[in-house]
Nucleic acid binder design. Sequence first.
DNA 1: GTAACCAGAATTGGCGCCAATTTATGATAA
DNA 2: TTATCATAAATTGGCGCCAATTCTGGTTAC
Lengths: 218, 218
Amino acid sequence: MSDDLTEMLAAEEKPEEKKDVTDLLLHDILTGTLPAGTWLKQIDLERRYDCTRPEVRRALDRLSQRRLVQHNPNRGYQVYELDDQRTREISDIRVILETGVADRMIANVTPAAIAELRGLARRFDEMSFRGSIMEHYDANLAFHRALLLLAGNSELVDVVAEIRQRTVSAPVSQWRTRARIEQSAREHHLMVDALEARDLAELKRLIEIHIRQAPIRT
Amino acid sequence: MSDDLTEMLAAEEKPEEKKDVTDLLLHDILTGTLPAGTWLKQIDLERRYDCTRPEVRRALDRLSQRRLVQHNPNRGYQVYELDDQRTREISDIRVILETGVADRMIANVTPAAIAELRGLARRFDEMSFRGSIMEHYDANLAFHRALLLLAGNSELVDVVAEIRQRTVSAPVSQWRTRARIEQSAREHHLMVDALEARDLAELKRLIEIHIRQAPIRT
DNA sequence: GTAACCAGAATTGGCGCCAATTTATGATAA
DNA sequence: TTATCATAAATTGGCGCCAATTCTGGTTAC
């Protein structure tokens, strides 16, 4: 009975589950599928991601090192719940870093970069209407990544990406309000405008309000 | 704020050496006992730290996540070797962050804080003469930690500490020149002076040259 | 009726074994 | 003598088992 059908099914199923468990878990935390405070039982994760126990533990250990999940010895792991003060502190760090390199962004900007950023900003707009939460999140990430790359410091891009991940538990839920999403989208375009006009003060101002608006309040 | 440094330094001496393997390995990388490029064979580490295989692997995984060791799949781990460009990028990040909060340091500074910083700066001086490499390193860390704490952003302290750790491979060798050490020690005192005088421009200037001179970490 | 306690179930976490892969060694042929 | 290949040794990395701890539910004592 080993015909073509079984072969095809086997061929189709395999390439799917080749992802790292850490990324999958991170994904579910970022999208809010696993809300803050949720207990992450190893058996549940094992079944959810169809993986082995050691893989689950490695993922939990990695994310606890990144402060994304909290480890309670002999009791378990749970999605990290961050207080207002810490979110404000992290926002402050992002503001300092991103406004701190605004001058370099302007110095290094090219017409090609402007075009790319406009495309990414439009992609974010598009994902606001028809796109999953994760696609939306990715579009936002891609825009800010491209923006930061202009500073010419690739290490900075990684650091900011890492820091940003520390605050995603809360803001994702805040993103559900369409008004705020559209506001963010507008600011993206305004930032590109300021960049094109080489208006440093305006760019800094936009970056600051863009970062601060999201993480504060519900 | 008047908690003294004797308390900090006399911190922990455990009757049984039950230290985490990750910290031990980190320690040896930071002090230069394991130079950049060294292959970290699991069996060697197992014997060196008298621990089990899973403990070694967890430590290696954690440090590779922090970019302190490089993981070559199916080949092994080795102490990360960083190029000049990356060290410069990391220094840039530190300069932006630490000068970016200089105004807050001045705003929050108190006589007690000044006294504590002077004590820590003096302790660094002392360790320059009679102290192991690690004690010296710790004294430096304690000073900068206390300095950053003045900004009132505890998350920032962690971030900077983490970033600083990414550059430790090279600087240890650079520290061997006594001239540079003494220069760093002088700058510590000068920074406290600027802080006390609430001279923002001077403080920023000192922080920048202090970070860049090393040119890694000081 | 309530609180403390104890036994059973469930969960976490340490540990060692073994397969897969890579590196080293030595033999053979050009 | 040198290059190539096959075989052996060493190393990495995946996986499951079982002890230690914690949680749950029911029972007993006050």
